[in-house]
Write a protein that binds this DNA or RNA. Sequence first.
DNA 1: CCATTTTTGCTCATTGTTGCGCGTTTTTGC
DNA 2: GCAAAAACGCGCAACAATGAGCAAAAATGG
Lengths: 258, 258
Amino acid sequence: MAEHRLLTAEREQKILELLGQSRVMTVAGLSEALAVSEATVRRDLQSMHERKLLQRVRGGAAFQGLTRQEPLFADKEEQQTEAKRRIALKALELVDDHDVVYLDGGSTVLALARLLEGRQGLTVVTNSMMAAAELMNSRHRLILVGGEFRARSRTLVGPLTAPVIQSLNVDKAFMGTIGFSIPDGMTTTDPSEAFTKEQILKRATQVVLLVDSSKLGVPSFARSGTIGDIDVLVTNRISEQMLRDVDSLGVRVILAGE
Amino acid sequence: MAEHRLLTAEREQKILELLGQSRVMTVAGLSEALAVSEATVRRDLQSMHERKLLQRVRGGAAFQGLTRQEPLFADKEEQQTEAKRRIALKALELVDDHDVVYLDGGSTVLALARLLEGRQGLTVVTNSMMAAAELMNSRHRLILVGGEFRARSRTLVGPLTAPVIQSLNVDKAFMGTIGFSIPDGMTTTDPSEAFTKEQILKRATQVVLLVDSSKLGVPSFARSGTIGDIDVLVTNRISEQMLRDVDSLGVRVILAGE
DNA sequence: CCATTTTTGCTCATTGTTGCGCGTTTTTGC
DNA sequence: GCAAAAACGCGCAACAATGAGCAAAAATGG
């Protein structure tokens, strides 16, 4: 690894990482850790705060989750939150201002929803109640697909979702999944859920799949789309073998790092 | 890791932590634990008390009881809550187990949603995000109409709601409204909202309008249904004149009392 | 290679924070 | 009740953090 000065994006990544560990960092501490002046750190923090990636406090910065409470649906089973967050951050780079995006269910996609404050004028279509709750107070245009509420995933699923989805076109669809493997593609536990996912795959110009490494290679019950439906795969870790396989199928892979 | 002076946010976090353990802390104790002057502790406690994070008591601070979590779908301050609750209770009597009901937006209907735990095996269709949030944890079947999210009323409205509503039949529709008067019928502020209301009126076997007396006789902007669409009117108070008028139009009136 | 733009680090005026002194208010002990 | 003690709040000075402006350095694009 060449000893090069860190790029802005790298610095930001590092800041989030440090914050994830310590919950809070001083400007002085970051300045030292990143080997840049405090002025630069302040500019970074300012910019990242505006994009809601962290909380600015006098003297330093605090992790988003520290003061902000996530009560209603506190997923205690939340594992790999840091990995999910990094995946979401990479996915955020794919979103441009004024895009029409679709957000699927799942905690990784939800992490992305929380970051969308960093963009402007989006139209967000979703079947995820949690993502909707997150975006209710944003300035983005929010559209929910109708349908039956599935408690387990807190999403709207089933045949009733079809008419709304079919009357819309979205630029980018950010999908989650329960399992992902080469032979089966995307799989999930519930056929109604799978049905809705397939609907949206047909209506999206670009399909981005967000999965942490624990889902890779693990098939589930109901097929919800083939690998051919996917344009971009964002994950935190992937085996050489799988990387070659999906690459040969024309899927662009983005690594979010460990 | 560099020893740094505690940031304000860190101090506050620590204070809450200590309070969680000991239920109560003295200013002197906090001053020592945090290594800051008592003056600073007092300022911190003052600030946190104003934000309802703890209870200020002379000499120190006490743990703030349950009020901690502010729900994701925060309720705005409600007026006439008692009247609304009584109206909702009367409306609940119209609901039988295993009914298919529609819940409209508005706080009175929301009050009814909260009471639906008292029934079994309902299928609840709604365009209200607040009602949906309320029923997410219930055992009832929950169906949301799709559509565009309108922040003001926290409901889903507009043309996208039509296909879902049109493919359903409901036994009883519980509607709210902004204004109600004899010449204009039901009126509301937003045409998209009115559109969705009209859709559901066509698909409901029985239409129940829930209004507190402050809405009676007060017309608003967009017509969302005529008096002829209504089967039952539940309110807390009504003038003799209006009672005669709606009665002559075949509307059954239920009084919830003052 | 040079011109242009962007990023960075420095200085400095401004603003926010902290601790202390002191007068006032509340509580405590009798 | 009443006086002493404790707690409090206010103003002030010292200090820390900040943002703006500017020049140097680095990246970018002919």
